[in-house]
Design a protein around this nucleic acid. Structure first.
Lengths: 212, 212
DNA sequence: TACGTGAGTTACTAGTAAGTAACATGACGG
DNA sequence: CCGTCATGTTACTTACTAGTAACTCACGTA
């Protein structure tokens, strides 16, 4: 996911992920978008405040006028990634209302599509889970809630299909999905095992729908 | 993977992963084992040389007498993780010689077993792939080679089963495997979707073995 | 006893990161 | 024309990290 952000730049005040209520606009957005991009590409630990503001053509003071701390920025980043992810998910799913089987297929199709692009580095939230240590409560709770919701949604879809063991099918689909994100870090474009995700998902769904 | 190291401490000279040929023994091993443990638990970027030597009850000078640099240590760490991983893999597979279908099941059984333990933090090599940037050639080549071999082995097993589309089946199994490692970071013990990996693998194998 | 060696101690350099203070500039509205 | 507000600039503090220098200690062996 990730890649380019939607067009919330300029024109409608503070973004949904802001920190202060009636605050700045211009520079903050520029810094934030740059930060999202860099965090996604190089990881959270791998990008410093200096690098962000330099890339954004700004400076540290402007940064700290818009963000309380780097931690606050990271949280905003993760929230934004989550927002974009669900937007992407909903868009994929919305094409087949009432047809959970096609919806699942659409998800895997869309995932492969993104994985083929150059700037895909897997799942931003999942990657963050690797970087952060367990005692960073705010961050890990955020990621945990996200992953929980992925799982819940897949369970629901499996249930809507009338699968024999909806929990298990949903979990299996989640493994395929996350396996795709994880392996995408190593295998460029669509060259990794991710290209097998869609047929595997189809086969799994079929297997869990037939009584055995 | 990871958890406790095998007993290569003391008695047979330098370890397989050493850097200098006829070098030290005692302190080096202590530091190395500590480093492996800390790297695995907190990530490579998350652990400094000071923390390692402190935890090992040693000091920085002794560290730099045994290791050329932190980078060298990281490389040794990844090599060691890879060695342990294949030892684990071979052990799981060796229980069912000539029966690739049972071998695959054994892998997923063993994976779940480890995932249930407290100190499991998923796949060390895969996690490293998240942390390192693409331009760190030595490290990313190391991880890439490892992932390639996982894939190759799964392809071979799928082929040995006589699967219709062995490449696709092998890839799908890899997605399940890596999905399990990835999600394990968030879901403690066996609570995540990883518990669905074995039945899903079974179902996939069955689906790819029957002519459709 | 003397000496070599593996290991610990202290103290340092250099670089980088987060975060802050004080001041400068430039545009825009009244 | 003046003030204000958003932004840029320079320079700093603090803390941490990789890596090194110089010295000391303890132990085993010739």
């Amino acid at each position: 996911m990730s890649s380019e952000k939607p067009g919330n730049s300029r024109g409608e005040g503070p973004t949904a992920t802001a920190c202060a209520p009636g605050s700045k606009a211009r520079v903050r957005d520029r810094i934030f978008e740059t930060a999202c991009d860099l965090f996604y590409r190089h990881g959270i630990h791998g990008v410093g405040v200096d690098a962000i503001v330099a890339e954004a053509g700004s400076n540290k003071m402007s940064f700290y006028r818009s963000f309380e701390s780097k931690d606050a920025l990271v949280i905003a980043y993760l929230r934004e990634q989550e927002r974009e992810y669900w937007a992407w998910w909903d868009a994929a799913v919305a094409r087949f209302p009432g047809d959970p089987r096609r919806q699942v297929e659409a998800l895997f199709e869309a995932q492969l599509e993104i994985a083929k692009s150059n700037n895909c580095r897997g799942c931003a939230l999942g990657n963050a889970a690797v970087e952060i240590s367990d005692d960073e409560d705010v961050l890990s709770n955020l990621v945990r809630a996200y992953k929980d919701q992925v799982r819940t949604r897949l369970h629901a879809m499996a249930r809507a299909m009338g699968a024999r063991d909806a929990e298990s099918l949903g979990d299996a689909l989640m493994l395929l999905l996350d396996g795709g994100y994880f392996t995408r870090l190593i295998f460029p474009r669509g060259s990794g095992p991710i290209s097998a995700a869609l047929p595997a998902a189809r086969a799994l769904v079929a297997a869990y729908l037939t009584a055995d």
